[in-house]
Design a protein around this nucleic acid. Structure first.
Lengths: 143, 143
DNA sequence: TCCTAATTGAAAAACATTTTCAATTAGCGC
DNA sequence: GCGCTAATTGAAAATGTTTTTCAATTAGGA
């Protein structure tokens, strides 16, 4: 289930964000993406559509899209900070370690675990971060 | 259950690493820590014991300690890259969002989830990243 | 069409991390 | 203890990413 480009544009408008050429280009890239992308990746792809695009704007737009829940921050192999399209509200990401393809899944069903850990430690649990890394079917065959 | 300073020193020796003043200082800091620390935090604390310590060495030592499994990389609020002491081999971290205290827990028991996601997507799952954020008992009271 | 606040890109700044390299040092064999 | 040597060190430079600044541009309501 892909992110819908038009829905996202409408959402931006509704939040009072102007629909600039640059934002449209960035939004187009992330809605079409099926893999995690770094800010630089998004920049490179979006620049093909909109040559006068700055990296600064890419960072700013990605921040807005994360706020809207359209993308989610994920890890990259090195340090951190990649982005993957998020169509499921409380979803998590499964990422292919070879081709970077990302798939979302929902129903993480950690409630039992959370209750146990909460009981054992006395912590109130506010959020959880879960991310899976593996090999997608295509890459399994290639190997 | 704390990391044992002496055990860790022995481990370093056995792996052929020299026990320098600087490494001892860094090891002392991370074994005593009960919270996630950035490289800069470790540097600041270790420098009190060993004034002629460079940040470069801190990075290098943290890398070794991660290799040995004595610490684990965790998220920081901003981007990434904090370190927390790891005494449980396949443990995960629960972090207090207010005071940064970290607690380890084991038995994440995700096998059912992993099987389901694997079946639905066709991915082979290689690793999982799970991290919980909440409020520790002390900080709940303070609030 | 006009107006204005939002948005932009370039450049600079800020930051974290890594690399380079000559000087120092831990720990082995003696 | 003593000397030797490879490992280790810190300072400085390099690298890479993200943020800030600021004057110029622009989207979109009036």
């Amino acid at each position: 289930m892909d992110l819908d480009l038009d829905t996202l544009k409408t959402q931006l408008s509704e939040q009072g964000y102007k629909l600039t050429r640059q934002r449209k280009a960035v939004v187009a890239v992330v809605t079409q993406a099926h893999m995690r992308l770094s800010a630089a990746d998004v920049f490179a792809q979006a620049q093909r559509v909109c040559p006068d695009l700055g990296l600064t704007t890419v960072y700013r737009t990605l921040e807005i899209l994360e706020e809207l829940g359209a993308i989610r921050r994920v890890h990259l192999d090195d340090g951190c900070e990649g982005f993957a399209p998020a169509s499921i509200e409380h979803g998590h990401h499964l990422i292919c370690s070879r081709c970077q393809e990302t798939v979302e899944f929902e129903g993480c069903n950690l409630s039992t675990l959370l209750k146990r850990v909460s009981g054992q430690t006395g912590f109130t649990i506010q959020e959880h971060w879960l991310e899976l890394v593996g090999l997608c079917p295509k890459c399994q065959r290639k190997k």
